[in-house]
Amino acid sequence: HSKGLKFGLYSDAGTLTCQKRPGGRGYEFQDARQYAAWGVDYLKYDWCSTTTQNQQASYSIMRDALLKSGRPIVFSICEWGTSKPWTWARDVGNLWRTTGDIQDCWDCKRDWGGMGFVHILDLQDGLESYAGPGHWNDPDMLEVGNGGMNATEYRAHFSLWCILAAPLMAGNDIRSMKPEIAEILTNREVVAVDQDASGLQGRRVKREGDSDVWAKQLSDGGRAVALLNRGKAPAQVSVSWSDIGYPAHLSASVRDLWAKKDLGTHAGSFSANVPAHGVVLIKVEP
């Protein structure tokens, strides 16, 4: 706390954590009191060693324990999306994982369920109606800076998490990150998209081949729009204003949030050349 950081802990709803250390089952109220005494701000609660337990019931017990602890503690549900927590967790936790574990790669998949950035991104489409202030879909922590992708890919990863109004948790070692990584994680204009007061999760509004367009409505009436190139070569990606809920004839100003540059007024649509595995992130304002 003295360094301006929050204090988060990890535990598990079962008898053992995923690292085979003691879990919280049967000790939820004792654990919550101890967490409060330690000044914990955030609890991630995993789902290993749970055998026949019911997800909603188990997480509700820890929710009740945290509420009685006397300290506000953010409750992160991590049962990997297996019971569709977005349908029941709004009144149980503050955020819930929607998928298996993220991997530091563009599109890899692991036999045990881990997956790369674009696979997790695809699984968020359609979940936007379940998210809002105080109850968020969690596509997992950021891999930005961990070395498995390049800076272009990390900008795409970070941009789309911001469009999704995802909880932004740096998964890299912030003590030793390169300047280009710090620049990604601390771009105020991009972070502002994630933190917009409306709390609306963005959605995919267009897909053509390897090109995606994702858009997020902002509290000022503007739109944040990510032009994503999933392909292995540069590509022209376009968005029509009608794709993002504006009249087709509208003239709107466009700002590039990574370049931090105003791109002028555009009537009806906007297009950009997007690098391979890259993104152009813009703010559109009528």
Rank of each mutant, 00 (worst) to 15 (best):
H1I: 12
L5S: 06
D12F: 01
T15S: 09
C18E: 14
R21N: 15
R21L: 15
G26Y: 02
G26T: 07
E28L: 01
Q30S: 07
D31V: 14
D31Y: 13
A32C: 10
R33D: 10
A37K: 13
W38K: 08
G39H: 08
G39E: 01
Y45A: 00
W47K: 09
S49G: 11
T51C: 01
T51H: 14
Q56V: 03
Q56R: 12
A65S: 07
L67E: 09
S76A: 14
I77N: 12
G81A: 04
T82Q: 09
P85Q: 08
W88R: 12
R90M: 06
D91S: 13
V92F: 06
L95I: 00
R97V: 08
T99D: 03
C105T: 13
W106Q: 04
R110F: 08
D111K: 09
W112K: 11
G116I: 06
F117C: 06
V118G: 06
V118A: 01
H119K: 08
I120P: 03
L121Y: 09
D122V: 00
L127Y: 08
E128V: 14
S129H: 15
S129D: 04
S129R: 15
Y130F: 10
L142A: 04
A151S: 10
A151M: 05
E153N: 10
E153C: 03
E153F: 05
A156G: 01
H157S: 05
F158G: 04
S159K: 12
C162L: 08
L164E: 05
A165W: 03
A166K: 07
A166E: 07
L168V: 11
M169S: 04
D173V: 02
M177C: 05
P179W: 11
I184R: 03
T186N: 14
V193H: 04
Q195E: 15
Q195R: 15
D196I: 03
S198F: 09
S198E: 05
G199T: 08
L200Q: 04
G202R: 00
G202D: 01
R204Q: 14
R207V: 00
A215P: 11
A215G: 02
Q217M: 12
D220K: 01
G221K: 00
G221N: 03
G222H: 08
V225T: 00
N229F: 02
G231I: 07
A233M: 04
A235M: 10
S238H: 13
S240E: 10
W241T: 01
W241V: 06
S242T: 12
S242Y: 11
I244L: 00
H249C: 10
A252Y: 00
A252C: 01
L257E: 05
L257F: 08
D262Q: 06
L263I: 07
L263A: 06
A272W: 02
V280A: 13
L281D: 13
I282Q: 05
K283L: 00
K283S: 08
V284T: 04
